[in-house]
Write a protein that binds this DNA or RNA. Sequence first.
DNA 1: TCCACCGGGGTCTGCCATTACG
DNA 2: CGTAATGGCAGACCCCGGTGGA
Length: 386
Amino acid sequence: MAAVAAVRALLSLHQSVTLQHSFGHIPAQSPSTFLLRVFCSAPIDGNELKPPVDTENVSLLENLNLLGVDVKMARLRQPGVLRKASTNEQGLTRFLQGKGASRKVIAGIISRYPRAITRSIDHLAQRWDLWRDIFQKDEEIVSILDRSPESFFRTSDNGNLKKNIAFLTSLGLNAKDLHRLLTTAPRTFSNSLALNKQMVEFLEDIYAKLGGNNPEQFPRFVISRNLYILIRSTKRVKTNIDMLRASLQLRDSELLALLEGSGAEILDLSNEYLKRNFKSLNQRMASLGCRKADLKKLILSYPIVLYIGPDTLNTKLDCLLSGGITMKQILEKPKVLDYSTQNITGRLGELQRLGYDFQKSGINILDSSRKRFDAKMGKLNASPDD
DNA sequence: TCCACCGGGGTCTGCCATTACG
DNA sequence: CGTAATGGCAGACCCCGGTGGA
C-alpha cells in the first residue's frame, strides 16, 4: 500500500517536527555536557517547571546513547523507563544481536519502544521461542520487531501468548494461517486472550443470529479473509455491519451472504471511512442514473468497492467511462475496479491504439494479470483486425 | 487453446486514553 | 501516586494465476 506508506511518512515527519519543536529549548549538546547539566540542576530542583531529566537514571542514559538510541524519542514515548534504577539494555542488546539484529535495528527498537529494556533474558528467550513456533527463521522475527517493536514487547505475559496460539489453532487456523496472521497483524498475539475471544464470539453470534449453518467455522473464515479483524474493536465491526444492513436494507440472508463472502474484508475499515465511501459511491451512481437496486447489487457482488476512497473511485470510473465503457458493463464486471488507476489508464491507452471495441469484445480483458494482458496484446498486435 | 470465474495473497504502526497494579 | 498493561483509533488497494468448460 503505497498510499499508506506515504501517509505514514508524512505522519512521522510531522512527529519528528513536533518533537524537535517541543524540545527546542534544549540545545543540541554532547552526552557529557548533557550529564553535567543533569548533575548541576539536580540540587536546585525547586518547584518551578523543570525538564524531566533530573530524576532520570544517568548511567542508563549513557548506555542508551552508546547504543545509538534516540533518547529524545524514548523519553517522549515512555518517560518512566528512563527513571528506572535497573534495566536490561545490555542483555536485550546481546540477545537481539544473537538473533542477527543489527546495531541500528536494536537502537530503533529501543527508541520506539523503550520498555523493551525492562524485559529479562529468560522472558525474551521464552517469548522468542513461542514466536519461533510460528516462524521458521530468526530473521523473520527480527524484521517484524524492526517494523513493529511494540507488538513483541508491549506485554510481558508469555502465558497469554501461549493461550492465544492455542486458541487461534482451536479455531481451525493452520500453521500457514498463523504465519500470515503473525506477519501481518502481530498485535493480535499481544491482545489479551479475552479480547480475542470477545471478537470471535461476537462473530459467531452475529453469524448464528443471521441463520448461518456452521458458526464455529465462521470466525476462522473471517480471520483468514481479514487478518486485521482481531486488532479491531467489536464496536467498530458491529457499527459497520449495522450501517451496511440499514443503508442497503439487507435481509438476513443477504447480509449473511455478504459476510460469508468478500464482505469480511471491509469490516475493519473505520466507521467514518466506510460511511464516507458509501455515501460517495451512492451519489456517483445516482448521478450516473443508476437505481438503488444497482447499488445494492454492486456492493453485494463486490463489497471491496467500499474499500476504495472517493477520489480514487471517481477517477477510476472517469477513466473507464471516458474510455468507452458503460456503467452497465462495470456493474457486470466490477472487478475491473480492483486494478490501480495507473494500470487501468495504461491498458485503456494500449487498447485504444488498437481500436479495441469494448462494446463488441467486452471488458474482461481489463481483469487479468499483467502477464496475461501482455500475452493478449501480443496476439492482438499480430492480427489487429480480430 | 482460450478465457471467464473465482479465490487467494501482499499488506499494517505508532500513538493516545484508560484501566490495572504496586 | 507513578508506571505497566491493555484497548482502540486513523490511515485508505492492488495484483496473480489455477481451473474447468467451451
